[in-house]
Nucleic acid binder design. Structure first.
Lengths: 219, 219
DNA sequence: ACAAGTCTGTTGCATATACAACGAAATAGG
DNA sequence: CCTATTTCGTTGTATATGCAACAGACTTGT
């Protein structure tokens, strides 16, 4: 129980709100919890949702199913993370993905319409909640846009350099550590791990950069 | 003049608002216009912005500059489109891109902080404005996420099928038209145009799909 | 300290892809 | 109707990339 409260408090959605205010919001806006067993659908493609989800325990996968039935896991949502928030903001927009529980999962749901429209009681923390939601969407937007920029590069080399360049700029130094291991980086950039390693070796040989494990230095 | 009003009214940000309400909002929230000559910086990388932009006339390019100084045009913003809205929602987040006017350009700026915080006067259309902004962010989010899913496929063939599958699902039929011509589709999927044509021909030969110009049919 | 497991770099190879070049078909403009 | 221009498909070629397999470095657990 206590750890769940921690998770909720730590969520960017409730940043800046006291525990009491959060409880207030949850009651006032009719938030509700649900439990799911392993491999149960939380949402199905085609559903129209009005609530965003917050994973409290367990986890869910966002899965895509194409015309021929091939399933792909788009992302993995852990406790504290939100899901379906974009769809919840778009009234009447049918889900183009499904949400599937990974193990035994507990999730909290919050009606976005109520978040936006209950302005009459307009408590300060309600405004804060709206701002937080907006920031969550904006942040996610920047992250995906950035990634999309990397993926749009034609070659592994270019993808890699774009990523490293952005990381250097983000960390404000030509020397920096990255959060990914090789396989994760390869997955993130949608390339083969060995091809990635090969490019790294080449770039080092060319003197464009130096690296040792997760530490990089751009020349 | 009149056409500018049209553009503002047609913007998703002001959807559902009457012309009078829009004028009200613009005054109340201290919106302001700016003119730019060709190739002038509207925003520079590193800037911290609090206003989103709406192009009224002309156009701007969102450009990225990497560590080595290579410039890439990330997107082209036409009259009626918003720019910098994600950054404006994230207080204190420095721009990682620059915004450059293409020709003589007129833009409208709206302080997002004021949009979110001026809840005291809480007019109905103010709530509507917030909801619209949220929907703009959410919609953009879904679009980029979808594109990112296509780009993450390893081969041209997979990218193409993922795109076509999504298009079929969106249009609710195995037969559909697409909005891109070949070069545009190739750019969107970040592949070579001729390689794209080659894959299309192969897929047609394999009987997976049929196409004629922009009309496609999945088998 | 040892063993088991994981992560990383390397290499060979078959294949996919970018690139360039060209002609046919479609489209636009006069 | 003719011409100029754009769009599209096709092909040859050099190169990049995915894939598989392996060895050494590093980590983890006991």
């Amino acid at each position: 129980m206590i750890e769940v409260t921690k998770i909720i408090k730590a969520s960017p959605l409730f940043e800046g709100l006291t525990e009491g205010e959060i409880e207030n919001v949850l009651n006032c806006l009719g938030a509700f919890e649900r439990w799911y067993i392993k491999d149960q659908f939380v949402f199905r493609r085609g559903d129209e949702v009005s609530s965003l989800g917050l994973v409290l325990q367990g986890g869910v996968h966002i899965v895509e199913e194409d015309y021929w039935g091939n399933r792909t896991i788009l992302s993995s949502i852990s406790p504290g993370d939100l899901f379906a928030e974009s769809y919840a903001c778009l009234h009447g927009q049918a889900l183009r993905v499904s949400v599937l529980s990974v193990g035994k999962t507990r999730a909290l749901f919050l009606d976005v319409g109520k978040v936006l429209e209950t302005c009459s009681s307009s408590c300060g923390f309600h405004t804060r909640l709206i701002k937080n939601l907006m920031m969550v969407l904006a942040r996610k937007n920047l992250l995906i846009t950035e990634k999309s920029g990397f993926l749009s590069k034609r070659s592994t080399k270019e993808k890699l350099l774009a990523y490293l360049s952005a990381e250097a700029q983000r960390q404000g130094s030509t020397q920096f550590d990255i959060a990914f291991n090789r396989q994760e980086l390869a997955d993130y950039l949608a390339v083969d791990r060995s091809a990635l390693s090969r490019e790294l070796a080449k770039l080092q040989e060319e003197g464009v950069l130096e690296f040792r494990k997760n530490h990089f230095a751009l020349a």
